[in-house]
Computed example of a mutant assay.
Amino acid sequence: MKIIIHHSSMVPIYEQLVDQIKTMILNEELNPGEILPSVRGLAKELKISALTVKKSYDTLEAEGFTITVHGKGTYVAQANRDAKLQEQQKEIEAEFEHAIEKARRYGMTEEDIRAVFDLIMEE
């Protein structure tokens, strides 16, 4: 599993880990039933605290992306298609919100923003 941690990032390490594993699951790089590296193994590989990896795995499980079987490990959950689509839609909405906020900071009106959006959609 290829995970890149940016220690200088303002995003906490556990969130970077969660985001990258979620992306791998949503992009089907990690498949349902596939086992994730052990907490200790991944911590050693990434040179981070095992508690950080544990927090990431707990977050992924709480969000329904993984299942942990005591004594066996953490596995990619048998996520249904609706959950994947919903997560992807949330990510796209966040991107649109960011772009709209930036456009408003630059002084663009709602009409200007819609015109840019329509232009992009035509391409």
Rank of each mutant, 00 (worst) to 15 (best):
Q16R: 02
T66C: 15
V39E: 14
D19G: 09
Q88K: 14
R105I: 04
E93T: 13
F117A: 15
I67Y: 04
V53G: 03
V53R: 01
E91M: 15
I100K: 07
E110V: 04
G33F: 00
D118E: 14
M24R: 11
R81M: 12
D19W: 06
V53C: 05
V11A: 06
V39F: 09
T59W: 06
I120C: 08
H6Y: 13
R40E: 14
V18R: 04
I13Y: 05
V116R: 07
E34L: 10
L46H: 01
H6E: 14
P32R: 02
V18N: 01
T74S: 09
E122Y: 08
E110M: 08
F96W: 10
S56W: 02
L26W: 08
V116Q: 07
N27E: 13
L85A: 12
Q89T: 13
L46E: 00
K47I: 12
N80C: 13
H70W: 13
E29L: 13
K55C: 02
H7E: 13
R114C: 06
E93R: 14
T68M: 03
F117I: 15
M121A: 09
K84D: 10
Q20H: 05
M24Y: 07
M24F: 08
L26P: 01
S9Y: 04
T23R: 12
Y14D: 06
T23V: 10
K54M: 08
E93N: 12
E122L: 09
Q16C: 01
Q20V: 02
V11K: 13
R114W: 09
Q16V: 00
V11P: 00
E111R: 11
A99D: 11
G107P: 05
G33M: 06
A77Q: 01
A94M: 10
E101V: 07
E95K: 15
I21N: 04
F117G: 09
E95Q: 15
E111D: 09
F117E: 08
T74V: 10
K84I: 15
Q88A: 11
E110Y: 08
D118T: 13
A115I: 15
D58P: 01
